[in-house]
Amino acid sequence: MATLNQAHTPLLKAGRSPHTAHKGRSTRKAVAVFVAPFAVLFLLFYAAPIIFAIIQSLLTVEREGTFGPPQQIFGGFSQYVLVFQDQAFWASVGRVLLFGVVQVPVMLGLALLFALLLDSPLLRGKKFFRLAFFAPYAVPGVIAAIMWGFLYSPSLSPFGVVTSEVNFLGGSLVLWSIANIVTWVYVGYNMLIIYASLLAIPTEIYEAARLDGASNAQIAWRIKIPLVTPAIILTGVFSIIGTLQLLAEPQTLRSFSSAISSTYTPNLAVYTTASVPNYNLAAAFSVVLALATFVLSFVFLKATQRKVSQ
């Protein structure tokens, strides 16, 4: 990057001579044209909603007497006090955190294992495995949940022998049944990201290691895994974000399982609260959730980056 920037600076600095002054202006205009569409859309549909949600979360609805017209007035942090007192919401946060602590490592571990196997000389039919493992990514969360919902159900499942004995949709297991659906959809996607970065490693490194007598397992452990750590971190961040946002799968499974409450995940709580409708409280939930997601993924990035650079 540094070289690119340096190569470019003289062009703009030379803008004093009459000829290039015109060029500098036209470059500025081009930059504006390039950046403006995204900037406008980003402001309207990313920044503005966040600001608007914060404003809404600071308001509260008040009525004059019991039957008076509702009025929005400034309520300070009163909605946030409600958020922090809301046990169902914090239970849902705890639930997705537990989910994430178990599901994300399992999923990324599998993805890494598959990527290493694809990259090893052990396998035949790599192209087939790559596509077969990636295919579930093309299935939307809602559809995957419908499909697995049928597969879990005691009456319809092709694995009736198992599902009539084990209640996958009952209160004690349903969280892990959801985890299985999410894993099924995303392992292949994460596998491909890690695999792509394995392919970018120059093969000379392996040859040198082999000359030094390293085995394939040692090469995988000592060379490959450290070199693809950035890719694993990237998939880790996206998985953490995805976990905190869980909505489609649990919401769809609700028609198969009575064990999933209307506040099972934080986003379900947002949706349920908004349907009441209590927009101010729902907005406060959203703000807390977005903030938590942002902080958690940021901390994860910083923590892992420090480890890598050490």
């Binding site: 503005a48 909603p49 966040i50 608007f52 947002v270 993924s297």
Partner: peptide, 23 residues
């Protein structure tokens, strides 16, 4: 601008659904 865009990557679209609805 690039840093703002990057932090946008970390703010998931679903967290924006309700605020977008309000707007």
């Amino acid at each position: 601008i690039f840093n703002v865009v990057l932090s946008g990557v970390l703010v998931p679209a679903t967290a924006l659904a309700l605020p977008l609805f309000l707007i």
